[in-house]
Design a protein around this nucleic acid. Sequence first.
DNA 1: TTGCTCCTCACGTCACGTGAGGTGGC
DNA 2: TTGCTCCTCACGTCACGTGAGGTGGC
Lengths: 240, 240
Amino acid sequence: VSIRMLRHYDEIGLLQPSSRSISGYREYNDEDVSRLQHIVSLRSTGMGLTDIAVHLASTTESKLEALESQANLLRTNIEILQQQLDSVDKNRRATLMGLTLTPEEIFEVFGEHDPTQHADETFERWGDTDSYKESQRRTSNYSKDDWASIQNDAQRHLDAFKDAMQAALAPDSEEAMAAAELHRLHIDTWFYPCSYEMQMGLADMYIADERFAEFYNNINPDMAQYVHAAILANALTNLD
Amino acid sequence: VSIRMLRHYDEIGLLQPSSRSISGYREYNDEDVSRLQHIVSLRSTGMGLTDIAVHLASTTESKLEALESQANLLRTNIEILQQQLDSVDKNRRATLMGLTLTPEEIFEVFGEHDPTQHADETFERWGDTDSYKESQRRTSNYSKDDWASIQNDAQRHLDAFKDAMQAALAPDSEEAMAAAELHRLHIDTWFYPCSYEMQMGLADMYIADERFAEFYNNINPDMAQYVHAAILANALTNLD
DNA sequence: TTGCTCCTCACGTCACGTGAGGTGGC
DNA sequence: TTGCTCCTCACGTCACGTGAGGTGGC
């Protein structure tokens, strides 16, 4: 709020100070100041000065109503900025993951299950590892169709685990171990080289990290534990 | 983002489309668009176009860094708007309560214990009552000094209750009942006519509403119950 | 008395807005 | 062929910025 703005608003009659000192200085009282605040907040939305004048003249608001509409204006602006921030943040996390899809495409492919959600944390924990870098290198070239294939492929080992569980087969049954092998090949094919040792590390994380555990347990009760056991059984058999 | 803006940015060399169609149409690719987004978000902070050009030229940011600084910019703007909203909201609640103090003066007098905090709820619950209207009528004329006196006066009955409790006196002791009478006169003097019936209603609220209970219990353990009992004892004695 | 802050013109500037007249793909 | 959307000048406008020259309280 430069002094030139005040003079300009005075000139065009938008905000004329309620009084002048003997020496001609502009004197603004509380009412003037609150009108100015209203003007400034309307200006920040991009409204022109003439429109503001019309608005302030037409709407015979009480002080309380004026404050309420000001608050609503600010809330709307905050919401708009928040949406912009969400979009930029999603874009940022996608970039961090080496994804070349736009936020819209990500939504199109993954729906609500946004894979960029924990990208910051993933980068913090694994950013320095070769697996992470290799994964980023590969995924940066994947198209929308590739990601759809990946999701289809993932569904195969998830279904296999689920079928084995529902058939009441042990985690070290042939079927469960086959599902574990599908899981390993899925990672190995699409993201980074996945040895049996590496896969056992993942299995540990699936039960240690609540979010992974929840993901599996939402498919089938106790599935996280089952997947963990099946992966270990399969890995130990193959490491012999 | 009007078409004229794009032409203007092209003219001054801030954002020149990476290619033109045969017929001379401006064609913007993804990179151009993200540069435009960056420009728009910098513009919304009030930065001039030449400054933006300098910024974009000097800072040899990667795509990720650009997105990060954009996100930070948005976060800062949201915070500024949030502070403005807080200020307007406080002002609004103060107006609702009939307070003529500015947010700064409110802070000066009451410190962290902001009396406007639950003004919306209070208005919802009591806005139609005569007591509320009378209280609003009176408080709208109170100055900073008046409010300081009110706080001093409140301290008197709070101390009286606390002293009675710490002397292990019963809620129906002469001292506790005197404190209850001070409480009643405090309300009656500063806010609205407070009969014994009215005061018993308040006493009920002090134990029913957790925030009031907590307020008293933070002064002395179980003080809410004690104040409740003392007010009832005093009221029933005086109503005979 | 000496800065310092306000004042009033008044021209300059920045970021576009707005026609005026013309051209190319559906 | 008929709109429709782009194009290029180019002048207009809006919201101030920026001196130029002057005045009044500490």
